[in-house]
Nucleic acid binder design. Structure first.
Lengths: 345, 345
DNA sequence: CTGTTAGCGCCTTCAA
DNA sequence: TTGAAGGCGCTAACAG
């Protein structure tokens, strides 16, 4: 059942049916009514493939994430999808699992489906792929990777703010021996977190031999193992900062398994503030990175490119704001119960 | 850049280009080589919309889940997507958040994109929507909702098996006062779990005044509150079965907040065995429902309908197995540390 | 084995 | 305001 069937029954041309659907007002109220009646009777709706073909616009967006199994990402996707839906877009979601092959495949699939834009929320990206996408003139929005350009924008996370608060919080509590469990060195965002932490520790007067740095992989398991390393050190830290909440959850577990108490003997701070963070034991003190805000800024950045102007940006804001504000997501410390005063022992 | 450009440069017709891409072997090795060369030079790939339009096949599948924020679902989607990719399908994912309006919208969007099949993993479904889908002759696979039919299959979870093991485990440990925290009464799968639990308790000799039943909502919060209800009862249960792991995580927290120990004073058993279950404190004893198996069975059920025959079913199995086996997912107790012997007090 | 031809369902000029 | 006609990029007959 296609547009011709509708046209026939409504005794109009297919052009008129198309118009009543897509350009309300360009058709007499009377004809429109007749057409809509038939449309409803037939439960007709346009074939999007035909539509995409002729219009050259698919109304599909792609979103690339590292790992849907990390709760951070479903929460991000949720927000992004809401916006996409609101603006009449469909979403193609792909989880790369930190695998370059999967990543390349995902990009290929998206390009084949002629997505109108891609949100690359993986914080790692092969320049060759970026090039492929740019070649097709498909706009991109990155997370933390760097240079903006024609059809390319970049959402910047202001790690320093929240991390600074976290470090200050720890210093307030009297901690002087602080460790950091970072993420994979290959991940740009993990590197940025690491740098922010080290920088803030340094600024807070925690010099090099008062701190330790180990590396996890942004999973619970990784955090667990990294914490065990830390516990095996001759001089134990009294506070541990983690590159993400999953890592912190693993660390929490390792500490407890070692028979130590949080925050009694060791304080732990996570990063992200995933929903679960509230429900660890004890509830996790962590640095919040708002998924909602990230989703929103990434989406409107993309939409702006697609619409070729700053219209959409304007639309998303009542007052005018700076470019930086539109592209920057801030972070903020959320104090719960995994941090406490250093115990004098 | 389209197929004609490739044809021109390779000095063949567009039909030949199409053939070298889609029907390897139907073209001379020599011409094929020439065509591929041009394809690579131009980085050409076919426009899927044009392809879908002419072939009548979109190679897109839809998957509907209740809540991507519940880790059970990302794990399920992951498996489903792997299979889809392997078979050349794209996936449209939608999270309904238990909202009928969102559900209806999701179905509409999928139908508009002419998905070739829909996996409805929500355990609740408006019959009107089912009808809409059937009207379009789009195959469906349900989870636990009931009747199979033309183009409709249903994956059945064998709750009794795992739940039976869980109850037996508890009885072995000497528990006689057992409570159950169920899911929303509106959810078919929650009802089935509830029935399985009650049935197994009954079969295990736990009669009515030895058990209590309260209702959560399959979230951590819901489990927390439900457990508080239970703790406020005059006679406290010594073991609690939960309708899913999130609920169990909330329960765990409530027990600990009340100053009681798990499993010292109260044993807790979850359901699903999400990845996180291993990382609660203490690690959660739970009934495993394999997402991988569920994804696989749902996918092949759908593929079978799409291919119109049992070919795909055969393909997925080396030996021949019964229909029941193809459509049933079993469950199994995984004993960790949240269960222990009843304490005589 | 290869080319020619005819649409797939829709939107969009261009005329009327 | 409405209709006729062309074409988006591709595949699937049908010839050759």
């Amino acid at each position: 059942m296609d547009i011709r069937e509708v046209a026939k029954r409504a005794k109009v041309s297919t052009a008129t049916v198309s118009r009543t659907i897509n350009k309300p007002g360009s058709v007499t109220a009377k004809t429109a009514e007749r057409v809509w009646k038939v449309i409803h009777e037939l439960r007709y709706f346009p074939n999007t493939h035909a539509r995409s073909l002729v219009s050259g616009r698919s109304r599909i967006l792609g979103i690339l994430v590292s790992d849907v199994t990390n709760p951070f990402f479903p929460e991000l996707i949720q927000g992004f999808d809401d916006l996409a839906m609101e603006h009449g877009y469909e979403l193609l979601i792909n989880s790369t699992r930190y695998d370059p092959v999967r990543m390349a495949l995902a990009v290929k699939r998206m390009l084949e489906r002629t997505v109108e834009g891609i949100a690359i929320m993986t914080s790692e990206m092969d320049p060759l792929l970026t090039e492929q996408i740019a070649l097709r003139h498909v706009p991109m929005t990155f997370l933390d990777v760097g240079q903006e350009g024609e059809g390319v924008s970049n959402i910047i996370v202001d790690y320093e703010r929240g991390v600074g608060e976290a470090v200050a919080h720890l210093l307030d509590l009297g901690h002087t021996k602080v460790a950091f469990i970072g993420g994979p060195l290959t991940l740009k965002s993990a590197m940025l977190r690491r740098m922010a932490f080290l920088h803030c520790l340094h600024a807070g007067g925690i010099i090099e031999d008062q701190r330790q740095v180990v590396t996890g992989d942004h999973t619970i398991d990784g955090g667990f193992q990294a914490m065990q390393e830390l516990l095996a050190c001759p001089v134990r830290p009294t506070a541990v900062l983690c590159s993400n909440d999953l890592t912190a959850m693993g660390a929490l577990r390792a500490v407890r398994r070692a028979g130590l108490r949080v925050p009694g003997e060791i304080s732990i701070i996570g990063f992200d503030d995933i929903h679960l963070a509230e429900f660890t034991e004890p509830p996790l003190t962590t640095v919040r990175l708002s998924r909602e805000e990230l989703a929103r800024k990434a989406f409107y950045a993309l939409l702006g490119h697609i619409q070729g102007t700053s219209e959409s940006i304007q639309a998303s804001q009542t007052e005018s704001v700076s470019h930086d504000e539109l592209r920057t997501v801030t972070t903020k410390l959320v104090v719960r119960e995994s941090t406490g005063p250093m115990r004098l022992s």
